[in-house]
Amino acid sequence: MAIFIDNDTRLVVQGITGRDGAFHAQQMQEYGTNLVAGVTPGKGGQTFTDGPEPVPIFDTVEQAVREAGANTSVIYVPPMFAADAIMEAAEAGVELIVAITEGIPVLDLTRVYPFVQERGARLLGPNCPGALSPGKAKVGIMPGQIVTEGPVGVVSRSGTLTYELVYLLTQAGIGQTTCIGIGGDPIIGTNFIDTLQAFEADPETKAVVMIGEIGGTDEQEAAAFVTAEMSKPVVGFIAGQTAPPGRRMGHAGAIISGSAGTAEEKMQAFEDNGIAVMKRPSDVVELVRSAL
């Protein structure tokens, strides 16, 4: 078992002929993901041949769903077209939409989110590294070589910091069920609680690593959820303990104004809810070991 993506994932890549889209389509297919289609308007009828197996390209996501049976989409299109691409996937009946694109205007997301929800789809991201279920499927940009199969679920707001922690686990021989990057933007489709809920329901996940950062209150709410709804142990990390207040630290979400959303506040919320808190990334191995 895994969450969100597994052997049943039938993936369509939106923006498959772009530089990033083509590179990652190839990487995902090499990892073993069932890549069934690509979409680039105007290039329908062509074939994507960069990966180990040829993949048909369609003009629209609707065609990719109808003709190739796609149920999951990953989006690499530029910010100005990304909101439309997400809504197209939802309208076409895709169940899981993973938006990698960084730089989508937040007001676009205020319209995209209810649109996607009303169509019963799940949006992961935007501005996220995607999801990776070791040995099953990789959707997004996480490097496949740093993961290994095992009992730990990982959920994070960041990209490379996730790789850091996952790699430390893998080097210590502790594998993962699924690694999820929920994205760093102020408005995201899937939050910590949604992901924790899925890990709680997944029988193979025995412990969860939650990686947060400054800004907002998602981590505090997730911490309360852990106490109220979770039986599995959770280990946490918060990035940005030394960030100066009010400055944008790369992620639009990482803004602290006043006292709301500081690292201190979040770490306290973790501790208050029985979540073991790492002081530095390398603490992850010991804390996860004792949680298991």
Binding site: R157, L161, M249, G250
Partner: peptide
């Protein structure tokens, strides 16, 4: 960004 913040920390 996340790794950069964690590096500062």
């Amino acid at each position: 960004a996340g790794l950069a913040m964690a590096t500062m920390d």
